[in-house]
Amino acid sequence: MEISPDAWVLYQWRGLELTATIVFTWAVMAVLVIGCRAVTSRLSDSEKVSRWQVMLEVIVTQIRDQIDDMGSGDPDRYLPFIGTLFLFIATSNLLMIVPGYQPPTGSLSTTAALAICVLIAVPLFSVGRRGLGGYLRTYVRPTPLMLPFNVISEVSRTVALAIRLYGNVMSGTVIVGILISVAPFFFPILLQLLGLLTGLIQAYIFAVLAMVYIASASRDRSSGQEGDRQNSKDQGD
């Protein structure tokens, strides 16, 4: 039994391996882009709107509202990044019901890549909003003594992001695999249903945490305390 889709090599060419992670990632991307393209190519400005458009509008509006609730202002600025994180992870996890599919989020490489994206995005958005000096000052708050802890916090929460998502998705796959060998009827289906719920919740947590990090780094006042609060929340997870 393969635990990680990284170990499932579909094609090999001169030492380069095309793993299932990459292929399923492309599949998820294709589903998302083609689905969105199909709906948005027939967008309607009038009051008469198709059901698919309503669905997309509800999703986009909800993501925007969530971003807005974080209090970082201008949700359209963060919408592409946060929204894509949520949609990609959610789609990857929900496609688990398709037989033969392995979620790319069950690969530590994918979750690490997403966490690294967040790690880079936090300073980028913060610098874009407050300037480089403003961003760097967040590391020496409330006192310069906190600098090492802040740096460690930055790294550790990134790692925590990656491990949390990977662990949850991977565990779901593993549990289903074990259950199939122990009790092959009915129970795996229940666990898969639970896995769908868990996958959606994980997508939500990942996106919300990413937004919280960005928001805490972008805030002018009491950003240090905010960051501490978020760190403690991370450790709680």
Binding site: T21, I22, P104, S107, S109, A113, L114
Partner: peptide, 13 residues
């Protein structure tokens, strides 16, 4: 794979 996934993610964004 990490690098490829970063690229994939950015393309998806």
């Amino acid at each position: 794979t990490v690098a490829a996934q970063i690229v994939n993610f950015l393309v998806l964004v």
